Amino acid sequence: MKLSHKLAMVSVAALMGMSPVVGVAVNNANAVQAATVYKTYGKNSKITATKTMYFVDANGKKTSKKAYEGGKYIIWLVKKINGKTYYGIQTDGKYWIPASATKGKVSYSTKKTTKKADSASKKATKKTTSSKKSTTKKTSKKTTSSTKKVTSLKPVKMVAIRATRVYDQNGKLAKTYKGSKKYTILGKNVKFDGLGTKTIKGVKYVALEPNRFYVKASDVKER
């Protein structure tokens, strides 16, 4: 009896040693983010179905509601389902139609930009406003004085070769000279001392009194 008991214990131990160890593996499910839903500008976003088909739900599964070719719908929502753009025809997001099966324009807003989706071409264009800066360049013209002063204090003996008028420092006819109007004309062969020269408006003058009275240099000469 003792021997049988030992054999029985060995058999049980052998069976336990031969039994395989079974491991349990646990897979962690990846979190799936919900697609962003954009709200449109309501009645300003209208489309027409280009073919008859069933609407899908928010997960892309076919519903029992049909969209008929030529049917017109106001779009309230826009989002991506399985990588494709869909339009929601109700504010509760119950029924969706693929943008590729419609024609028309849908406008919807995001935080940064306002987008307009063209169903026919399936393109979204961003509205951007550009401000043009207009610059005005101011140019300053440098005016050069036409009056140059070249004064010589050493008297030069001069004589009038013809009757000549007396001018002021601005090149205008003098109203008086030596206190009288009659002296504003210098007669031919009248001798005087020239007290330097001055160019006024491109014309050279000889000074009778510097910075006051002058005669034209072309009407006089040295003697």
Rank of each mutant, 00 (worst) to 15 (best):
T52S: 15
G23V: 07
E222G: 13
K80S: 12
S109P: 03
K178Y: 03
Y108G: 00
Y73R: 03
S180F: 00
S11N: 12
D92R: 05
T40A: 02
K94N: 12
L208W: 02
K157W: 04
R165I: 03
I47F: 05
M18D: 02
D92T: 11
Q169F: 06
G70H: 07
M158E: 02
V10W: 13
G42R: 09
D57S: 05
Y214E: 12
S121I: 10
R212A: 15
R165N: 12
P210I: 07
M9A: 15
S218T: 15
G88V: 04
I200C: 05
F213Q: 02
D219T: 13
K204F: 06
M158N: 03
A58N: 09
M1R: 10
A58P: 01
K137D: 08
G93M: 02
S109F: 10
K39C: 00
E69A: 13
K157D: 12
G179V: 06
S131C: 02
K178H: 08
K111D: 14
S11M: 15
T135W: 11
K51Y: 00
Y205A: 05
G202E: 06
Y73L: 06
N170S: 15
K137A: 11
S107V: 14
N27T: 07
T110W: 05
G93E: 07
A101L: 04
M16H: 06
I97Q: 01
Y73H: 09
V12G: 08
S45N: 02
G171F: 08
V220E: 07
G60D: 06
L3C: 02
K2Q: 11
S100K: 10
T110M: 10
Y54Q: 06
L195M: 14
K116V: 14
A13L: 15
A99Y: 00
K94V: 00
A35I: 02
T147E: 09
K51G: 03
K175Q: 08
I75Y: 00
K138S: 15
G71L: 01
S19W: 09
D168F: 04
S109Y: 13
T36V: 13
K80M: 07
L15D: 10
Y214K: 04
N30F: 01
G104H: 04
D118I: 01
S145T: 15
S4L: 13
S140M: 07
L195A: 04
T144A: 12
Y87E: 01
D193N: 15
G88C: 10
G70N: 09
K105A: 06
N28Y: 00
H5F: 06
A35V: 07
D219M: 04
M18N: 11
T176G: 03
